Amino acid sequence: MSAPILPDLADLRAAVRQWKADGQVIGVVPTMGALHDGHLSLVRRARESCDRVIVTIFVNPRQFNSAEDFARYPRTEDSDAALLAPLGVDAVFVPDAAQVYPPSHATVVSVSGISEPLEGAHRPGHFDGVATVVTLLFNMTQADRAYFGEKDWQQLQVVTRLVQDLKLPVEIIPCPSIRADDGLALSSRNQRLTPQGRAQAAALPAALFEAARQIESGTPEQQALASALATIADAGFGEVEYLELRDAATLGPVLPDRPARLLVAAWLDGVRLIDNVGVTLP
């Protein structure tokens, strides 16, 4: 039996009111659709620890920097619903843009500092769009817990800070990245790679993990990063927008005795790929 698809906020709120009245814990998995095993792992995690699970599907126009990129983003609602059917999802909330951003909508949520480097520097306004839609979805679903993948590491930190700063009554649950057999982090954008590009793409996580290994074994950071950049270039990638070692929580400069994260964004086959891996500094 498939989960009910709810396109209308009033129907979602009616269901949520009943669940809340019954004292049930509600989990939400916010997505933009084009679901893959990474999304499904979040749903399974939510199913394990919540009484009710909502999956939201909304391709958020406000987090795209390019109208062309927004238009090309995969929209696969029917196949998404089929993937969710066996997972015990209680509702699939699929609002249209008018419900999320009516003509009168005038509020933007902005998280300063942590949103500014890396993705923020290369995609101006992106995290304002993320923070705004996430706040809306939290309010719409009234979820107790929200599940986000570590693959979008900076997004996870921005959402975590948003919830802390605004005292929102939702717990953010981070979940590990899910990777293909060759190491590539699963992403809806991977669907846009050509077969050749998909084969080349595995060099990105390989270079990232090798750089992390080198840094952890004492190789100077810049030497390890230079080697990784050469590997990525040799694999046929185009522009590497960033490859940087940052403090895992603040995304500022790394500090002694604190977790670090190595993050990358690079272009291949006309597709922008991002990835990250944890690093324990020597």
Rank of each mutant, 00 (worst) to 15 (best):
M1S: 13
D11Q: 12
R13Q: 15
A15D: 05
A15I: 01
G23D: 14
Q24A: 14
T31E: 02
M32P: 12
D37S: 04
L40F: 01
S41A: 13
S41R: 00
L42Y: 01
L42A: 07
R44L: 04
R44A: 07
R44S: 06
A46C: 13
R52F: 10
V59D: 07
F64W: 13
S66T: 07
D69I: 09
R75F: 09
E77V: 13
A82H: 09
A85H: 04
G88W: 06
A91I: 15
A97W: 03
Q99H: 08
P103Y: 02
S104F: 04
H105S: 15
S110Y: 11
V111K: 07
I114S: 03
S115I: 04
P117K: 01
P117Q: 02
A121T: 09
H126P: 11
D128V: 06
D128R: 13
G129Y: 10
V130G: 00
A131I: 07
T135L: 06
T135G: 04
T135C: 07
Q142P: 10
A143K: 11
D144E: 05
D152M: 09
L162S: 06
D165M: 08
L166G: 01
L166C: 04
P169Y: 01
E171R: 14
E171T: 14
P176E: 02
R179I: 00
A180G: 04
D182W: 08
G183E: 00
L186Y: 00
S187D: 00
S188C: 03
L193E: 01
L193R: 00
G197L: 13
Q200I: 00
Q200P: 03
A201L: 03
A206H: 09
A206M: 07
A206L: 11
A206C: 03
F209W: 13
A211V: 09
A211G: 06
A212P: 08
Q214C: 14
P220W: 05
E221M: 15
A224G: 14
A226T: 13
A228S: 09
A230Y: 02
T231I: 05
A233Y: 08
D234W: 00
G236M: 04
E239T: 11
R246E: 00
R246V: 07
D247C: 13
D247Y: 07
A249I: 10
A249M: 09
T250I: 10
L251D: 01
L251V: 08
L255A: 12
P256F: 05
D257E: 14
P259K: 12
L262F: 09
A265S: 11
G270N: 02
G278N: 08
V279N: 10
V279Y: 08
V279D: 10
L281V: 12
